[in-house]
Design a protein around this nucleic acid. Sequence first.
RNA 1: GGGCCGCUAGCUCAGCAGGCAGAGCACCGCCCUUUUAAGGCGGGUGUCGUUGGUUCGAAUCCAACGCGGCUCACCA
Length: 494
Amino acid sequence: MQETPLSDLIQQRIKKLSIIRSLGIEPYNGIFEPSDSTENIFKKFGELSKEELENENITLSVAGRIILLRDFGKAVFAHIQDSKGRIQIYLRKDILGEKFTPIKNLDIGDIIGVKGRLFRTKTNELTIEVHDFVFLSKALRPLPEKWHGLKDIEARYRQRYVDLIVNPSVKETFIKRQLIIKYLREFLENEGFLEVETPMMHTIAGGARAKPFKTYHEALDMELYLRIAPELYLKRLLVGGFERVFEIGKNFRNEGISTKHNPEFTMVEFYVAYKDYNWLMDFTEKLLSYITEKLCGSLQVKYGDYLIDFTPPYQRITMFDALRKKGLPEEAMKDCDLALQWAKAKGIEIPKGSSLSKVLDEIFKELVEPELIQPTFIIDYPVELSPLAKRKSDNPELVERFELFIAGREMANAFSELNDPLDQKDRFLRQLEERLKGDEEVPEMDEDFIKALEFGMPPAAGEGIGIDRLVMILTNNQSIRDVILFPLLRPETK
RNA sequence: GGGCCGCUAGCUCAGCAGGCAGAGCACCGCCCUUUUAAGGCGGGUGUCGUUGGUUCGAAUCCAACGCGGCUCACCA
């Protein structure tokens, strides 16, 4: 590795570091236990007037990063920032005496601990008059500008740590992300679900149709896949007698990257025995309105130009009714050639060799999906598109499945689970034909999953929700990369 | 993978009818003990993404490449 030449700015700071050391201070060895967070200080004392503060003589300590610095010669004002806020500090030569000297080598970005008395300045800002301070970390690299912050998108993703320091809204997004997952878990646990962990390294990448990442186990001399979905393992747990299970975790799909796709993404999948997809729709409404209400304090959420309303019930339309509304003639819904013709007339490109179901799916994605702004359940899909879902009893060509769309995006996918082992095997076999035709995304036959079904799986409903996409909606972010701390990027070239 | 756009100082950005590389903030020096985008005086710190080409002369024009963004394609 070639050392990058250090810029003058870094050299200057290294020089300051050695000056500090020559004063007998080791700026990385300090230990400091703050008495309060900045948030706490404002909560406890934010209402006190100038006079009250003078009378009460409140002494406290905080630690944080210097983000603004104003040097007056014999006095210095600075703002320090901790995890939840910032507060002004005031350092005076006549108070600090000898300890004032190293302050001349303080930089924006340094982390210090200060102890002092709370007061209000002439302009009424709550401020700590510092009586003692400790260097906790000397920053060698300068932070981005105080006014414009860090805007360069690439730099924000590559150096998320800097992004988090200087762009408060970014930190907020990731705090909300954690809250969303917390409320989700809370809701499911209150409903009697057991959280489980199933393998992320699979010998067969099943449960979805996607190209997997490959990896290799040395000791077993065996190829493995990073999971594309936990579905087949969670259903094995239904066979095993768990009646309500869920898993929150990463899935990995070896596909294109976009504002809606990251190769690794977070899903929750949950399964309930003895329920069907109708029950699950009601349940989904409760789940989403619970999270939204708790997070936003309202069921209405601004997303870009939209106001998304999570108040149940959500509209439920069958896939075929949605197509009918778009003017697709009845005959075309039963005839592949007619459907193809109709799609072509509308300027929709359809991959060669597509079956009727696939053509209808393409038309749906093109014409219907983008218009599903408010939470909407699309229900009853063709069996061919849904190899793991249970057939409708009144129409075996359709399955009891729904997808939830919000802001024109697929948010959740759910169905009454197929628990007929022979039908399941049959559908896997039919898929295998596609695999033999060269479709790499069709999973191999999972014999063990069939075996599990042969032991008997209770009727059940299962659902997967894309957490990243839900976070996008609830935090008003337009790119999935803005809700993933470290999105995948090509390495920088030097 | 295709199309379009971007890459200039630590950061945010000008400069691109080819002619000595700029501003604000940050930084360095001096002054300043209630400032807050502190202020005053002085200082430009750069591989203009990379490599080639055109030209007397390229940040600027052309080509290839790299990284990123948007978009299309892909996407159970």
